[in-house]
Design a protein around this nucleic acid. Structure first.
Length: 406
DNA sequence: TCTGGGGTCCTAGGACCC
DNA sequence: TCTGGGGTCCTAGGACCC
């Protein structure tokens, strides 16, 4: 970990696509361009700037949004179009510097502090990124530049829409301290409320409290974290090559009463979708988590860790069913309104060597033996199998799990 | 405000191991 | 007899982010 002292110059970029989902839709559909529009269903996922001007916000129920803006055009999400656009933008980032850390589908940190001789000042690089993203992908990008990740993110927020802002090192505290506490990473409604009870509403207020005081109020983890951010101590480097650590899917069920069998069918869909994504990414996982939300909006989770990693739909399905079954009565009583399934504890599929019980002596050759193994174990296997002969051994990939028939 | 669909990180207790 | 000190893993829950 490098300290801030080693980096006297603002060289971290936070690049953030503006109103991402909505902008992709406006780009692809001339009738939506320049209009108050949003992406979503019963809830707004993203709103164009024209809609935001009328008060439409992310996570707002559609009904409320239409009240504010009766002419609001609403289109359903097209996740694939967004991932494609995101990938194209991230490619432009990586073409600029190898030090790219994507943090969500529409945001990334870039470290360009070592590129001064090669590519010029960070502000110049930021301008170049914005021009390329506009011309090659057709989207508006805002960029913040600072010495630290946190300030770079604050700066990109201030620069929006379609702008850029460099935080010069001598102006850091001037920008930081007047901000409301909610702007600090990790401060949500609960923490903001706890702080407000003690009269702490701005970052300057937080900075005025000692570290010990913050730790007493919020616990060791968040207390220290907030203390550091408020004093502009954020030595986190830009990290490349991070991989997702969990993959999940969930389904809101509305207020309609459903049978247990219907819940089982939903669960199968979720498990199969998640396992399919796992296999597509050549990963395997070991921990299954079921997430419940009930009519009174309380939440609950149940998880189980398997003895070995897999991406098999059938293995995870039976695990998930084991977690669901004991709650059958409770689910009816408390009115299940959301069901989620997540796999964590992930590792690369190639790292898994399974030992499968099989006697290949009756097979004439390798292909035949493999076919037989896949027939016998294919529905629950991913990774590689190692076949040991008299004088040599081969390691072969196993087939991914087929989609289970309903 | 009656609420979508993806994620991350932290905490804390208990089981278990040496 | 009622008890050290260190560690890992698992489960459940909470808060937060986009």
């Amino acid at each position: 970990v490098r300290s801030i002292k080693d980096k006297p110059i603002a060289g971290i970029l936070h690049a953030d696509l503006d109103a991402f989902y909505a902008s992709v839709e406006q780009r692809d559909n001339a009738r939506l361009a320049g209009k108050a529009m949003a992406v979503g269903g019963s809830v707004i996922l993203a709103a164009s700037y024209q809609a935001r001007a009328l008060g439409v916000r992310t996570a707002m129920p559609l009904r409320d949004a239409l009240e504010l803006c009766p002419n609001l055009a609403v289109v359903p999400p097209r996740m694939e179009a967004y991932s494609d656009a995101s990938a194209a933008v991230m490619d432009i980032f990586r073409d600029t510097t190898p030090l790219v850390e994507p943090i969500s589908i529409d945001e990334a940190f870039l470290d360009v502090s070592g590129l001064r001789r090669l590519s010029g000042e960070p502000a110049h690089i930021a301008q170049g990124l914005r021009t390329r993203v506009a011309s090659e992908v057709g989207l508006a990008l805002s960029v913040g530049v600072a010495r630290t990740k946190f300030l770079a993110k604050v700066a990109s927020g201030v620069a929006k829409p379609d702008g850029q802002l460099v935080v010069e090192p001598h102006l850091e505290l001037e920008i930081l301290h007047p901000l409301p506490v909610q702007r600090l990473w990790g401060v949500g409604p609960k923490t903001a409320e706890k702080l407000a009870e003690r009269g702490i509403v701005s970052v300057a207020d937080v900075a005025a409290v000692g570290e010990a005081g913050l730790v007493t109020m919020l616990g060791t983890g968040s207390g220290r974290h907030l203390y550091r951010l408020a004093h502009n101590l954020d030595p986190r480097p830009v990290v490349t090559g991070r991989r997702r650590s969990s993959i999940g899917a969930q389904r809101a069920l509305g207020s309609q009463q459903r049978s247990f069998d219907e819940h089982c069918a939903t669960l199968l869909e979720l498990v199969d979708r998640v396992c399919g994504r796992l296999r597509d990414g050549h990963r395997v996982g070991r921990t299954a988590t079921l997430r419940f939300r009930f009519g009174d909006f309380s939440r609950d989770t149940r998880s189980r860790t398997l003895g070995e990693s897999t991406a098999s739909t059938s293995v995870f399905l039976s695990t998930a069913q084991d977690l669901l079954a004991p709650r059958r009565d409770e689910i009816r009583r408390r009115q299940l309104t959301l069901l989620g399934f997540t796999i964590s504890n992930l590792s690369p599929a190639d790292a898994v060597q399974q030992s499968l019980p099989f006697d290949a002596r009756s097979s004439a050759n390798l292909d035949e033996a493999l076919d037989a193994i896949r027939t016998k174990h294919g529905s629950s296997s991913i990774g590689r199998a190692r076949l040991v002969g008299r004088s040599n051994a081969v390691s072969v990939p196993l087939l991914p799990d087929p989609v289970l028939p309903l």
